[in-house]
Simulated scan of single mutants.
Amino acid sequence: MTITIADLPTVRSRTPEAIGEAARRRVRRPLLGESGRLMIVAADHPARGALAAGGRPLAMANRGELLRRLVLALSRPGVDGVLATADILEDLLLLGALEGKVALGSMNRGGLAGSAFEADDRFTGHRAEDLERMRFDGGKLLLRIDRDDPGSLSTLHATARAVDAMAERRLPLFVEPFLSRRDDRGRLVNDVSPEAVTTSVAIASGLGGTSAYTWLKVPVTADPDEMGPVLETSTLPAVLLGGDLGPDPGEVFHRWRHALRLPTVQGLVAGRSLLYPADDDVARAVDTAVGLL
């Protein structure tokens, strides 16, 4: 039976067991395919209350539209999979969009965007046992370290235990580390200077009782030539964090292309910049990103 986006509320209310059945039937694949590279589309922003995209403050609040864009992105050649929270991954499961794709679950979403407790980023999403039960292919967590906020210690400790739990199940875990601070308006902002990214990589690489299944998800610094020394901080495999394309997408794509040549970099994870590009051409934005690999 083919399920459409319009069918999802009915299926969820009348046959919730269909989600588990779809998870058990799903055709899986290795994390790295024949190309040895990884292109993942990220869509875990809504669970943090971060709904803005493409200049629209509530763009990602329309679930049907988000799913349409995700299904289109996943259908493009060279796209390996998706990173999302349980609700979105389960919608995609029901739609059949995860067949032969990598499905990564987002684990800590408790540090709501703009909240006073944002640095205390609790694990309110997937647990390691959930990812194993649903036959997903790995997990991702966000590690923001604000030296002036004691809540960061809770996140650091929980991250280390998540590293252990995922390694016990031989599931890859993508750790996205930042040194962060509060700005003059009280907002938590990430420092993407080479020194800060280097330090965050060093901290993230040493978490847990083993790093065998740990991957890094790192931002690209403003000067792509600085990324080489940054990533020499660790031998762990890394993917690039594809941030906002801004007013000059060509310049951003140039930085991504340069950093993708580094030996520890295995691929790219990008979300809103590809799903909600300025010209609204999702296929074109995704194809351009795939071409960088």
Rank of each mutant, 00 (worst) to 15 (best):
T2C: 00
I5V: 15
D7R: 04
D7V: 02
L8S: 03
S13W: 05
T15E: 08
P16N: 06
E17W: 14
I19S: 06
A22N: 06
R28T: 15
R29M: 10
P30T: 01
G33M: 12
D44V: 11
D44C: 04
P46C: 15
A47V: 13
A47H: 09
G49D: 06
G54Y: 11
R56E: 09
A59C: 07
A59F: 01
R63A: 08
E65T: 15
E65A: 15
L66P: 00
R68W: 04
R69E: 02
A73G: 04
A73M: 02
A73V: 05
S75M: 05
R76S: 05
R76W: 00
P77F: 11
V82D: 12
L83H: 01
A86G: 09
I88Q: 02
E90N: 15
D91K: 12
L92T: 01
G96S: 05
K101G: 06
G105R: 10
N108D: 03
R109L: 03
S115G: 11
E118F: 05
E118Q: 15
D120Y: 09
D120H: 02
D120N: 10
D120L: 10
R122Y: 02
F123E: 01
F123I: 03
T124W: 08
E132I: 03
R133G: 06
R133S: 11
G139P: 12
L141C: 15
I145D: 07
P150R: 13
S152Y: 13
F174G: 00
F178R: 08
F178Q: 02
L179Y: 10
S180K: 11
R181A: 11
R181P: 00
R182H: 13
L188C: 02
D191H: 07
E195F: 02
A202N: 04
A202D: 06
G206A: 04
W215G: 10
L216I: 06
L216C: 03
V220G: 12
P224E: 12
L231T: 06
T233W: 00
L236F: 04
G243M: 12
P247D: 13
V252I: 15
F253V: 08
L260M: 12
L262W: 07
L262C: 06
V269Q: 09
R272V: 00
R272F: 00
P277T: 11
A278I: 04
D279Q: 00
D279V: 10
A283M: 08
A285P: 02
V286N: 11
A289D: 14
A289R: 13
V290D: 13
